[in-house]
Design a protein around this nucleic acid. Sequence first.
DNA 1: AATTTTAACGCAAACGGTTGCGCTAAATCA
DNA 2: TGATTTAGCGCAACCGTTTGCGTTAAAATT
Lengths: 346, 346
Amino acid sequence: MSEYRLPTIKEIAKRLNVSVSTVSRALRDHPSIGLVTTMRVQNVAKELGYEVNRSAIHFKERKTYSIGVIIPNLSEPFFSSALTGIEDAVEANNYNVIIGQSLESFEREKRIVENMKDHRVDGILVSLTKETSSYEHFDGLKKYNIPVVFFDRIPSKKNINYVACNLVSGMLQAVTKLVSLGHKRIGLINGPAKLAATLQRLEIYYKCLKAHELQLDHEVIVSTSLSKADNRRAMTQLLDIAEPPTAVIVFNDYVLLDCIATVKARGLVINQDVSFISFANLPIWEYMDSVPLASIEQFAYQQSSMATDFLFQLIKHAGNPAGTEPPLLQHIIDSEMIEYTRTSGQ
Amino acid sequence: MSEYRLPTIKEIAKRLNVSVSTVSRALRDHPSIGLVTTMRVQNVAKELGYEVNRSAIHFKERKTYSIGVIIPNLSEPFFSSALTGIEDAVEANNYNVIIGQSLESFEREKRIVENMKDHRVDGILVSLTKETSSYEHFDGLKKYNIPVVFFDRIPSKKNINYVACNLVSGMLQAVTKLVSLGHKRIGLINGPAKLAATLQRLEIYYKCLKAHELQLDHEVIVSTSLSKADNRRAMTQLLDIAEPPTAVIVFNDYVLLDCIATVKARGLVINQDVSFISFANLPIWEYMDSVPLASIEQFAYQQSSMATDFLFQLIKHAGNPAGTEPPLLQHIIDSEMIEYTRTSGQ
DNA sequence: AATTTTAACGCAAACGGTTGCGCTAAATCA
DNA sequence: TGATTTAGCGCAACCGTTTGCGTTAAAATT
């Protein structure tokens, strides 16, 4: 049993006294093979339990029919649902997904890129590490004709393929809601400067304030390195201001969890003494006592599946004989505010 | 650029006027090639930026150097950290991980198995769907010499390779704690009968009660289909008993979240009117107002990395020339109780 | 000096399938 | 009926690497 080998087209050919090329074509319903021969071949193939050896084809076609996915952390719901989006988009194309978690480590991201290059994936989808600020490790891939599409956490660079999320739309909804509730002093707990998302959030913040003619006060803008301790420190910093903000926009739900704990530890009441708006839309709020007023959905699934479609376009293009330049595929989708109806949780 | 091709050993051979076999051996420091030749070959290889074509080797060796991982849902922290364990264990062997989420669908699980068989993975790691109760879709793999190792959610079958978690150890710790706190009437909210884990939890429950000489009352044993609504119904059922249990062992933390909400909706206080013990150890409790007394850690990372080691043993064995029967690799690791110190969350 | 050993390398097949081109015989055309 | 098209199939190269075996010349042995 250990020496069992799958039947090959050679054996089918031998059985029927035809050539391997005839078998090869017949199996794929090639028009230049007669109907009777095609039928006989396919019957014998079924009888023998023939299955095409993909490795042989991969080898000959110089393709692996697999794409690499590099993401920071699958334990984040955002990325795990992103992966589901990729899987679904890939299934139709009969491709395989090779996964690599960078775990927010730049070095690990580089290693994974190398490994995937070695394994000759046909393309790569990437969402960057928090640490990643240089992108040379992706440059090598272009030489090997391996297209790359970034999603969500994308490089701050021009000529790349990407799908990202426009946070303005969702945030404008949220700030509008805050203003309608009477809030005038809205703080911001932002992320580390390295992330493109951080700069983006800041710009959005400015836009929203301006849209509602609110006064800009740099005192209520703080930032966190995203560590638990620093999240708490940032929140504390805001609360210690002489006139603390009545509402705070927080980088994401993870940071918010720490902020809520900090506020509570002070004996303050969420959504009464201070209200929150956050990003990421974790699926946990419905179980929590204290929730933000709203969270901004960034559509992981949609981002990743569109990025996957982009990647397949590029892969298809790479297979073209002509040396035409590949297109630059870029798209930004709109975010949306998700409201949480509960008000207080004591 | 689009026609760019990587250098092959042929070109190195041509450059140096040696044969391809010499180059092949020299690149791998084969002893039968002279030192000078080896050096010259390796220098030219580096100069040309040579990289071995894995696809060619995969083809020739009839191996893909990739393993398949089939798990229900990456959005569950348990499975995402299991995947990390697999990745880490795999990295050392220069293998790739091909991922497939069954999303708790039996049909999808079958499809993924087929797909991975088609792609000739060298082995498969599986954690079963909740729906899965027949295992014929794995039988075909043995014929193709593709070893399978199950972990955590394993088939109720004898001659399989698996790593699972023994819940007795952790649960005994937990019940001992409950008893020491004065609890005498301990309920159980169990999972669906299909799951092996459900039967296991029931047996453990019996064992624990017997160990502490507590009275067994089937009235306080209910079960849930794991849906949100049914979780709440199960908890309500327990609270509606004339003499409700003062402590409840819950199938897992997800169910527990619903139970806690149900209890609170009744105006009861967690860890005062009713205490909980749960499984799975979600990383969310530290942010919650209401927490279980303890949760039982099932060591996803350790389970999966051991399962991966098992798989590599089997893969290695499959490569053996002799037709010797592969070993049966089975292991059960102990669970542990994780205590949560906070008492009440109002 | 004749023989055996050994070091160093080349030859060629093999892995399984695809594909451009050529060939033959039948069908179609003029 | 002779010339031309076409349907149906085979030949053989090719993809890149590995490996058993053969070959040659130098080194070691007797």
